[in-house]
């Protein structure tokens, strides 16, 4: 066996999985070649060391999420095997990929506008009817945007949920479903980025008293100072004077993060 040939068998030799003939040949070579023997000993030590490296363990959250999703998948399978309602059958045509969802939304918009325009010229529909059709189309587009946002915000991947939140920016301020999804994200999403982004998207819903109350209630529940600061900033942007008692409490809360306390003090100065 040559030096080059011996290298190929080294890792199996360290793992003790080499065949008997090859092992004898390799040991014969190592006995005669000091350089290969030294290299085998050095690398072999590292090879064994690799198996001693402590294994990273996933959080318990992974198991919970897996069983929840598996349950939902089975439920979906059972529902589809029973035939499902006409709404479910219709929903099955809705694509899973966000790119296709956006493409389909755009195509539907173009088709809708074309039909509307064609009918208008063909039948000489008056301006009032055209305006009403346009309003209907706007409503449909808004509905689709809502579907995309809600669907993305339920994804496993944090980056997909971030996309969902960015869709929520364009939702109508009266869309309570999107508002509820954003509030859920702020209070329960495990990813800080998603929570901060969701706080930012709440600006659209600032006029709604539900938003203001939910923001105030969420501050003490948050574990991340970054999210707490984002929520305080939102209250200042919304000029929410009713938040003053809550903020004052926060400035004296010794368990709160120092930067959160400072931000609460800053907010108090602006709101009072």
């Amino acid at each position: 066996m040559t030096c080059d040939e011996s290298k190929i068998f080294l890792s199996e030799y360290w793992s003790q999985t080499l065949g008997e003939t090859q092992e004898l040949a390799l040991e014969g070579h190592l006995a005669m070649c000091a350089a290969c023997r030294a290299e085998s000993e050095r690398l072999g030590t590292l090879w064994r060391g690799l198996s001693l490296l402590p294994a990273e363990e996933p959080s318990a959250n992974l198991r919970t999420r897996f069983y929840e999703t598996l349950g939902a998948y089975r439920h979906g399978l059972e529902a589809s095997s029973k035939g499902g309602s006409w709404i479910q059958k219709l929903a099955a045509f809705w694509p899973k990929q966000p790119a296709f969802q956006m493409g389909l939304s755009f195509a539907l918009l173009v088709i809708g506008v074309s039909i509307g325009y064609g009918m208008r010229s063909a039948d000489k529909i008056d301006r009032k009817d055209a305006a009403s059709e346009l309003a209907t189309l706007r409503g449909e587009v808004s509905g689709m945007r809502q579907m995309v946002a809600l669907s993305l915000m339920q994804q496993q991947s944090a980056s997909e949920r971030l996309r969902g939140v960015s869709f929520a920016y364009r939702a109508e301020s009266s869309d309570t479903e999107v508002l509820a999804a954003l509030l859920r994200s702020i209070n329960t999403d495990p990813n800080i980025n998603v929570r901060v982004q969701a706080v930012d998207a709440l600006h659209t819903f600032g006029a709604n008293p539900v938003t203001r109350n939910a923001v105030m209630q969420s501050i003490p529940r948050q574990s991340s100072p970054m999210v707490q600061v984002a929520l305080i900033d939102l209250l200042v942007d919304l000029k929410e004077k009713e938040a003053v008692p809550e903020l004052r409490k926060l400035t004296t809360d010794s368990t709160a993060n120092e930067s959160v306390r400072q931000r609460a003090q800053w907010a108090l100065e602006r709101l009072q």
């Binding site: 990273e56 996933p58 959080s59 959250n61 992974l62 999420r65 897996f66 999703t69 998948y73 496993q156 991947s157 944090a158 495990p190 990813n191």
Partner: peptide
């Protein structure tokens, strides 16, 4: 070991099973 990001790794594990 590949991406050094625990959260992303949990997402990917979930993704693999589905």
């Amino acid at each position: 070991s590949m991406n050094r990001n625990r959260e992303l790794s949990e997402d990917l594990v979930q993704d693999v099973f589905f």
